[in-house]
């Protein structure tokens, strides 16, 4: 008996899939994905149970068209929306949906984990980081802006949850 569940499914190769898709649309230059030889690492400076965690998403608080410019934005965790917007981004709109905030923005779960002492607290704002074609813009403008906002909120850790 051949049991297919015993065989591990392979992760989707998104870079290759994207390259073929845009090639089929007649784009002649493939996107150059970010690549870093040196990756920073820092151990925790205090226990997780004393750390404040900030959440960063690629979703948006406002509806956008694919052609609208995107900017860093932040929302109050005490005024969470029912869902975020992301029809301008590439994600699997056929297989799933964004109607349940908890499936992609873990603020409420983190609040529960703060209550039971797993983490210290949740930073007062969550941040919406725009996905940009320009890596320079992400590196030099948007990422420093999100970092600065996390620091303003005295966050110790950042949990980045891209759609």
């Amino acid at each position: 008996m051949y049991d297919i569940s015993m065989h591990e499914a392979q992760p989707v190769q998104y870079m290759e899939r994207t390259r073929l898709y845009y090639e089929a649309q007649g784009f002649d230059r493939a996107y150059q994905w970010a690549q870093h030889d040196d990756v920073p690492f820092k151990p925790l400076s205090k226990p997780l149970s004393e750390s404040r965690v900030a959440v960063v998403t690629t979703g948006a608080r406002y509806d956008r068209l694919m052609t609208d410019p995107r900017f860093v934005d932040s929302g109050d965790i005490d005024e969470l929306p029912s869902h975020l917007f992301a029809r301008d981004l590439a994600w699997d709109k056929e297989a799933t949906h964004l109607n349940d905030l908890g499936s992609y923005l873990p603020v409420r779960i983190l609040q529960t984990l703060a209550e039971n002492g797993t983490i210290g607290s949740v930073a007062s704002r969550f941040h919406c980081l725009p996905t940009e074609y320009s890596q320079r813009r992400t590196r030099e403008t948007d990422a420093p802006e999100v970092l600065s906002r996390c620091q303003e909120d005295h966050a110790d850790l950042a949990l980045l949850v891209p759609l």
């Binding site: 499914a9 992760p11 989707v12 190769q13 998104y14 870079m15 290759e16 994905w33 970010a34 690549q35 870093h36 030889d37 040196d38 990756v39 920073p40 690492f41 820092k42 992301a86 590439a90 994600w91 699997d92 709109k93 297989a95 799933t96 949906h97 964004l98 109607n99 349940d100 908890g102 499936s103 992609y104 923005l105 873990p106 779960i109 949850v161 891209p162 759609l163």
Partner: peptide
């Protein structure tokens, strides 16, 4: 998207092999 994250290189990556959109779990 493990291929994209591993190419980029990040300090820590918790990989959830789900369709893009629900990294924290099923709705």
């Amino acid at each position: 998207a493990i291929d994209i994250v591993e190419r980029c290189g990040v300090p820590r990556f918790y990989f959830v092999d789900f369709p893009l959109g629900n990294p924290c779990g099923k709705p």
